[in-house]
C-alpha cells in the first residue's frame, strides 16, 4: 500500500524577467490501486504538476510538500524519485541518439533494482512486455525515441512503466496524438500494469476520450494552477458535455 500526498504545492518558473507562478496551491492524494484523473484546459499547469512531481529542474517549488509513504520527495534528486517508486510517462519523450532501447531499459532496470537483471529472464520479460503492447521485436535495437512515430513514443513510455513497476505512475497526456487503435493498446497496457502491480495512477489529460478505456476513481478539474473541483467519474461526463468554460470563467471572476 503506497500513498503519494501533495499538500498546498506552489511552484514557479524563474526567468530573467522574474518568477512566473504556475502551481498555486495543489493538494492531492494518489493511493495504490486507485486512478486519479486530472483534467484541465490548455495552459492550466497540469503538465507542470507532472514535471514537478518528477523533479524537472526548470521548475522551482516555492512552498508545499510532496510525500511518498513518509519520504520527502522534494528533497530527492530526479533519479532518487524514480528509485523511490515514482514514474512519469512523458508527453514529449526526448531522443537519445546512439543509445538503443534495450541498452537504455537494461541500464534503467539495473539502477532501479540495484543489480543487473539476469539475461535470460530479462530477454523473456522484455519480449512479453513488447508483444503485449503490439510492438515489433526489432524495436529494441532502435535508438531511444529516434524516429519514433507519436504512437511508438507513447507505447515505449508504457512499456517502460510496465517493466519498471513503479508504485505511483503519472501519465502526462499519454492519450494526445494517438489514434483510437493505439489508444486502446496503450490503455490496456495501463490497466494491466495497474492491476498486476496494485499501483496508483495519476492520469493527466485534456480529453475525456481516454476515460472510456481507463476508468478513473476520482476526477479533478484543474484550472489556473490548482484543483477547482473534485468528483467521481460523473464529473468527467459533465465535462464531456459542457466543457471547461464554467470553471475558467469562475477562475477569472
Amino acid at each position: 500500500m503506497s500513498m503519494l500526498t501533495i499538500t498546498d504545492l506552489h511552484a514557479c518558473v524563474i526567468t530573467d524577467e522574474g518568477e512566473t507562478p504556475i502551481l498555486r496551491g495543489v493538494s492531492l492524494v494518489v493511493e495504490s490501486g486507485k486512478t486519479n484523473a486530472i483534467m484541465g484546459p490548455n495552459g492550466s499547469g497540469k503538465s507542470t504538476l507532472a514535471y514537478v512531481i518528477a523533479g524537472h529542474p526548470k521548475y522551482t517549488v516555492t512552498s508545499g510538500s510532496i510525500d511518498l509513504d513518509g519520504e520527502d520527495v522534494l528533497a530527492m534528486s530526479v533519479d532518487e524519485r524514480a528509485r523511490a517508486g515514482l514514474f512519469l510517462a512523458m508527453q514529449y519523450p526526448v531522443e537519445i541518439p546512439g543509445v538503443s532501447v534495450s541498452n537504455f531499459l537494461r541500464t534503467s532496470i539495473t539502477a532501479l533494482r540495484g543489480e543487473a537483471p539476469k539475461l535470460r529472464t530479462w530477454t523473456k520479460d522484455m519480449k512479453l512486455a513488447m508483444s503485449d503492447l503490439q510492438m515489433d521485436p526489432a524495436f529494441s535495437s532502435r535508438n531511444v525515441n529516434e524516429g519514433f512515430s507519436g504512437g511508438e513514443k507513447k507505447r515505449h513510455e508504457i512499456l517502460q512503466m510496465g517493466l519498471m513497476q513503479p508504485k505511483i505512475a503519472v501519465l502526462d497526456e499519454t492519450d494526445s496524438g494517438l489514434d483510437v487503435d493505439a489508444l486502446k493498446v496503450v490503455s490496456e497496457g495501463v490497466n494491466r500494469f495497474k492491476d498486476q502491480n496494485d499501483a496508483g495512477v495519476l492520469l493527466i489529460t485534456h480529453y475525456t476520450r481516454i476515460l472510456r478505456y481507463i476508468k478513473p476513481d476520482v476526477v479533478h478539474v484543474f484550472v489556473d494552477g490548482k484543483i477547482v473541483a473534485t468528483g467521481g467519474p460523473e464529473l468527467a461526463e459533465a465535462l464531456e458535455a459542457d466543457g471547461y468554460e464554467s470553471y475558467t470563467t469562475a477562475a477569472r471572476a
Binding site: 534528486s77 530526479v78 533519479d79 524519485r81 537519445i96 541518439p97 546512439g98 534503467s108
Partner: peptide, 30 residues
C-alpha cells in the same frame, strides 16, 4: 548537452553520472 536528455534518463532511475556517460557514448558510437 541536452538537459532534457539528462532529465529523461534520470527520471528512469539512472544516476546523473551514468546518464551523462550514456549520452556521450551514444554520441560517439557511430
Amino acid at each position: 548537452f541536452d538537459d532534457e536528455q539528462l532529465f529523461y534518463l534520470q527520471s528512469r532511475g539512472i544516476p546523473e553520472a551514468t546518464a551523462r556517460q550514456l549520452v556521450v557514448r551514444g554520441f560517439f558510437v557511430e
